[in-house]
């Protein structure tokens, strides 16, 4: 996958996040990723990296993701060479950078890496899903189109856990909520899946919620972040932090 940096507005005929208007108001610079456009940065990159290390909010809705559910889903995933976490509400990083989380004994969530290049997510998309439809009812694996149903935000930085305590009942501090752990809970009264997936040394939480609620959630989180000087950040800053390790 190649990254074509372009100045705003986003490329024509590309999938946009529901937050697109908010991004353009903030003078975001977009990059093209497959059929979608993603915010690369809002301002000067070096400052944005520092912001993200302190407290940042990124819209990663354009990154690929996929889900599977059903009694046969774990077996099927293993047959595809996917490494599964041992218990629900945990996730493991795959060889290609994808993150596979177990939301229950029978439900999987697969997130792409920050480059959107995880072969797992991309190759699973068209081919395997077709084959699932033909499989025996006993296999019981159903495809969940997570890219369409859910938005994906990332909250980054050392102040993230403390900020979350204002809008979320689950304790997300590092010593309570380990790397790879998942919390399915209420965030600012919105149902959300929170996955801790640090960017090297920088704490990072992916937040997946119903895509129709993301504008409300974005505004709520920015409001809660204000007292910690938290700001929107682009994916470029996140990639830089991830590469610091």
């Amino acid at each position: 996958m190649t990254h074509v940096n372009s100045s705003q507005p986003a490329m024509q005929n590309q999938r946009r996040s529901p937050l697109y208007r908010r991004h353009t108001e903030l003078k975001a610079e977009f990059e093209s990723l497959g059929d979608a456009s993603l915010v690369s940065r809002y301002g000067e990159l070096a400052a944005e990296i520092e912001s993200a290390a302190q407290l940042g909010l990124a819209d990663l809705s354009a990154l690929p993701r996929i889900g599977f559910k059903g009694a046969g889903a774990p077996q099927w995933a293993i047959s595809q060479g996917i490494k599964l976490p041992e218990s629900p509400n945990h996730s493991v990083v795959q060889d290609d950078g994808a993150l596979v989380g177990k939301l229950s004994h029978q439900e999987l969530l697969i997130l792409s890496d920050l480059a959107g290049s995880s072969a797992l997510v991309n190759s699973l998309e068209p081919v395997q899903i077709e084959s699932l439809k033909q499989s025996e009812p006993a296999a019981q694996t159903y495809h969940l189109p997570r890219a369409h149903s859910h938005s994906c935000l990332a909250v980054t930085g050392t102040a993230a856990a403390e900020m979350f305590s204002k809008v979320c009942g689950v304790d997300l501090r590092s010593h309570k909520f380990a790397q790879g752990q998942i919390a399915q809970t209420s965030l600012a009264k919105i149902n959300a899946v929170i996955v801790r997936h640090d960017l090297a040394e920088t704490p990072c939480f992916y937040v997946l919620s119903d895509i129709s609620t993301v504008e409300f959630l974005w505004d709520c989180l920015l409001d809660a972040m204000q007292e910690y000087a938290g700001v929107p950040v682009g994916v470029a800053a996140l990639r830089s932090l991830a590469a610091r390790g």
Partner: peptide, 11 residues
């Protein structure tokens, strides 16, 4: 049973 103790408003 899956997610542990939570505020009843989550249910």
């Amino acid at each position: 049973p899956l997610n542990g103790p939570r505020n009843i408003s989550e249910f």
